[in-house]
Write a protein that binds this DNA or RNA. Structure first.
Length: 904
RNA sequence: GGUCACUUAGCUCAGUUGGUAGAGCAUACGCUUCACACGCGUAGGGUCACAGGUUCAAGUCCUGUAGUGACCACCA
């Protein structure tokens, strides 16, 4: 068999995904076991405007590991994919498109705008789903959904109408976060803070009417003074007692505004007098309500000043107006000063423009009932269970406790148009469709609300709308089988935006939890330790990594990150896993080059007598006629399988990767292959034997040799299965090459399916096959070889130089070494192993101590450098002395002896 | 301002019931050893941020300090 010398990821990646998909491996229907338990995950739907970034790659890898393992274990596994309509992002794309044509949304009209948006979505919206195929994501494409699918849209209307009818959704005038760039309101959760050092605190003097006194107010937004309708001071502030109730002649306007007293004012900040602009500041809005102040809106939706700001300012951008206001105050001699001031500004999460708090009429969702649903689930059932629990559970809970109403309307066209209609008199009729609204209104002269819903409103229904629920249909097979889903894998940035709302709405409308567990991934940071972003230019493109290192290496690297931890991107680490993939390839290559007469045979190792359906084993333990190395590797394999399973159950993906890396590279490659090599190749090599590989492969394969080949290839096969969820392409490529792999190796649920490692039974590991004795014996052999190699290297003994090994050990240990004499001689490049009770070595020897009171010596007549050997021994002595002192100190400590557990 | 997390080898990171500090890379030395130089062998390298405390025993638990970061609130 011709096998390439190095693993070429592209080749394997190109052929398997399509075959898996075509064979239906991703759909749960592949499972033929009617009693199979279900396992389900819904994907956090990526934006249709998005393309794959490292965060997706990380989350998808983890979800795929979970899904692939459960599928292999025979679960009816569904990983449901789909995309989100991303209303602001798509809207912006179309606005840009129109701008290039000299048009605007208004000029082309809503209908044409939406036509263009759908065209855009159909053309570019599947970029990310194509990229997911490249990742190897085992999602069920037959169940792919889009948040604006007809049924999902119907679900949105149903939920909206129900919440409205129950009084949880209402329309009202509130101060909202207005983005002047996107010209829409956004929710609190979509506002981010940005600290700027170049802010200014401006002190303006307001003349008091009928007096020559001036009251100074401080502001960071001078232009809003045009909308001031009061000045407030603290009622206890002695400085201003006499001014309360008097009037201010507001400069630049011909308005008079009152001086009021309100607790909100902090006398210690600024001047202790606050200008009040109820229409442009949330706190001022509250003050305004308390004092019945006029709410004067002085800005347009693009943050230019409007007519109410006065003729001098109307039409000016807010920042130009700010400058002009300050100039005018200066001209009037009313500018007291401007201080430099570090200011934190609210910015739009998506476009980074400064948010303008603005009085506006919007739709809101009252969160009281839903918050209680979610809090109750957490308090009574600790649901959802977060991984890692700290700090996510607390962050989630505290957020819920302080939850305010959710602004759900958006001044956009792309999205779910709000199912509310108005008659000529402005009466509102909320209904599932226009017909219903007309019936309610008793007229057909209705206009639908122009706004759409927050994108997160439809995402909140994702866990059940994707399983067919739409209000009209409320029971489906998928809802029964797959909801609650088992686990949600997502980032911390959307715990509030998405996770919490899914919990609330799923519980409210289906009466079920959306998921049991929530795995919160960390952030993959750029090489500079900052979050990856286009503006920083520190992003790492997953597709480039796939090309450079292979998909499997990238996945293994991503899975090797501790759950929830942020990590700096590190090319060296991904290279480690590229190398690992190549190591696996070459180990398999070795086995395959020597596979004549061998087959994958689980019975060859007696470790799979447990029926695949999980029945009790018919025979326990490894047969004694197997070598120590065989019993050792079987023990290591089963121990590894058990630990890998338990690590994945705990979502400790990094631990699983470490276990597999160590098992495969160190145990399997470095020791098992080396120990079995002679028997498997049939060659008893000596350094000077001139035997070509070709000549060897033509030798007859003895029965014993074939058995050894079968054993190693069976171990390899089991290792590939364990690796498969992490490295699907490489393992499939190799598995298909193994002799006589077939559907009998599948989990019984898939016995009729086309052969693939995807459906092979995932090894659970058998504790009864953990052989402590074999592990200890093998460890002694490994240590012995290590000591000799150490001596050789330290004493500069040439690799070609053969040495004699003298070992003193007890009878049991002597037997172990004797049984492995050939391997010890080969791996330690020696020609003779002398075993005895007591060490009888010539004076010119290098020595070392082994565990269990054994000793090793290598006679070095003429070779030895005494000074060097003295050095080496002194080092070893120091090490042993330190250890011994530590142990003695412990043992002579009465408290230790009396209190420490016996096994210590 | 509040809450929380992090600080372990030169670098990037593991270390989950407290029991002699680990990995990969880098470094040094040596290897065309018949699967792999994306490799093989060996070695050096850490008072686990700092200061206290609990304990027979602390990287691991508690308190405080410093630095870094995240989130929430506020920001006239």
């Amino acid at each position: 068999m011709e096998i390439a010398k190095a693993y070429e990821p592209k080749q394997a990646e190109e052929k398997h995904y399509e075959r898996w998909e075509r064979a239906g491996c991703f759909a749960p229907e592949i499972n033929q076991n009617l009693d199979a338990p279900a396992f389900s995950i819904v994907i956090p739907p990526p934006n249709v405007t998005g393309s794959l970034h490292m965060g997706h790659a990380l989350q998808h890898t983890l979800m795929d590991v979970l899904a692939r393992r459960k599928r292999m274990q025979g679960f009816r596994t569904l990983w449901l994919p789909g995309t989100d309509h991303a209303s602001i992002s798509v809207q912006r794309k179309i606005v840009e498109q129109l701008r290039a044509e000299g048009e605007t949304p208004r000029s082309v009209g809503r209908e044409d705008f939406l036509r263009r948006a759908w065209a855009w979505k159909n053309l570019y919206g599947n970029t990310i789903t194509q990229q997911m195929r490249r990742e190897g994501a085992s999602v069920d494409w037959t169940r792919e959904h889009f948040t604006m699918d007809e049924s999902l849209s119907r679900a949105v209307r149903e939920v909206f109408v129900t919440l409205y009818d129950e009084g949880w959704i209402y329309r009202g005038m509130r101060i909202v976060n207005w983005c002047p760039f996107d010209k829409t309101v956004i929710s609190d959760a979509e506002v981010k803070d940005e600290t700027r050092k170049d802010g200014k605190l401006t002190f303006l003097q307001y003349p008091v009417k009928n007096s020559d006194r001036k009251l100074t107010v401080a502001t960071t937004r001078p232009e809003t003074m045009l909308g001031d309708t009061a000045v407030a001071v603290n009622p206890t502030d002695k400085r201003y007692q006499d001014l309360i109730g008097q009037m201010i002649e507001l400069p630049l306007t011909n308005r008079e505004i009152p001086i009021i007293a309100d607790q909100y004012v902090d006398p210690a900040f600024g001047t202790g007098a606050v200008k009040i602009t109820p229409a442009h500041d949330p706190n001022d809005y509250e003050v305004g309500l308390r004092h019945n102040l006029e709410q004067l809106v002085v800005m347009n939706d693009d943050a230019t000043m409007n007519e109410a700001a006065g003729a001098d300012f109307a039409g000016l951008d807010r920042f130009a107006a700010r400058k002009k206001v300050v100039e005018r105050f200066e001209e009037l001699g009313l500018l007291e000063k401007q201080d430099d001031y570090e200011i934190t500004l609210p910015v739009c999460e998506r476009c980074k423009n400064v948010i303008e708090p603005l009085l506006s009429e919007q739709w809101f969702c009252r969160m009281n009932e839903m918050r209680d649903l979610a809090l109750n689930l957490m308090q009574t059932e600790k649901s959802p269970h977060f991984y890692p629990e700290v700090p996510n559970e607390k962050v989630y809970t505290v957020w819920l406790e302080n939850l305010k109403d959710w602004t759900i309307s958006r001044q956009l066209w792309w999205g779910h148009q709000i199912p509310a209609w108005y008659d000529q008199n402005g009466n509102v009729f909320v209904a599932r469709n226009k017909d219903d609204a007309e019936k309610q209104a008793g007229t057909i002269d209705l206009t639908q609300d122009a706004d759409v819903l927050d994108t997160w409103f439809s995402s909140a229904l994702w866990a059940f709308s994707t399983f067919g629920w739409n209000g009209e249909i409320t029971e489906t097979e998928d809802l029964n089988v797959y909801l609650p889903t088992d686990v949600l894998v997502t980032g911390r940035d959307i715990i509030f935006l998405w996770v919490s709302r899914m919990v609330m709405l799923t519980e409210k409308f289906v009466g079920k939890k959306p998921f049991d567990d929530v795995v919160i991934t960390g952030t993959v940071l750029g090489k500079d330790g900052k979050p990856m972003s286009k503006s920083r230019g520190n992003g790492v493109d997953p597709l480039e990594m796939f090309d450079k290192y292979g998909v499997d290496a990238t996945r293994a690297y991503l899975a090797s990150i501790a759950t929830g931890a942020d990590i700096k991107w590190n090319d060296v680490q991904i290279e480690t896993f590229r190398n690992f993939a190549n190591k696996i390839w070459n180990a398999a290559r070795f086995c395959l080059m020597n596979s004549e007469g061998a087959t994958v045979d689980l019975k060859s190792l007696e470790f799979c007598l447990r029926a695949a359906d999980g029945a009790e084993p018919t025979k326990v333990g490894t047969p004694n006629d197997l070598s120590i190395a065989d019993r050792w590797i079987i023990s290591r394999l089963n121990r590894t399988a058990i630990e890998v399973n338990s690590a994945i159950e705990k979502y400790f993906f990094h631990e699983a990767v470490q276990l597999l890396y160590h098992f495969f590279w160190d145990d399997f490659c470095s020791w098992y292959i080396e120990f079995s090599k002679d028997e498997i190749t049939g060659g008893n090599f000596s350094a000077d034997a001139d035997v070509s590989a070709e000549a060897l492969s033509n030798l007859d394969v003895s029965e014993q040799q074939a058995a050894a080949r079968t054993r190693i290839i069976t171990i390899l096969e089991q290792a590939l299965r364990l690796l498969h969820p992490f490295m699907p392409f490489l393992t499939e490529e190799l598995w298909q090459m193994l002799p006589e792999t077939n559907a009998n190796l599948h989990n019984p649920a898939y016995s009729k399916a086309e052969k693939t490692i995807m459906l092979a039974d995932f090894p659970r590991g058998d504790a009864s096959l953990i052989d402590e004795i074999a592990e200890a014996e093998m460890q002694a052999v490994i240590d012995l070889i290590g000591k000799i190699r150490n001596i050789r290297a330290e004493m500069n003994i040439k690799p070609s130089e053969r040495v004699t090994i003298l070992v003193a050990a007890n009878a049991d240990l002597q037997n172990v070494f004797a049984a492995n004499e050939a391997q010890i001689l080969k791996l330690a490049r020696s020609n003779e192993l002398k075993l005895s009770e007591k060490l009888d070595a010539p004076r010119q020897s290098a020595r070392a101590v082994l565990a269990g009171g054994a000793e090793v010596a290598i006679p070095l007549e003429g070779l030895i450098d005494f000074a060097k050997e003295t050095d080496r021994l002194e080092k070893e002595l120091a090490k042993l002395t330190a250890e011994s002192e530590k142990l003695n100190a412990q043992l002579s400590n009465e408290n230790f002896v009396s209190r420490a557990p016996a096994e210590k």
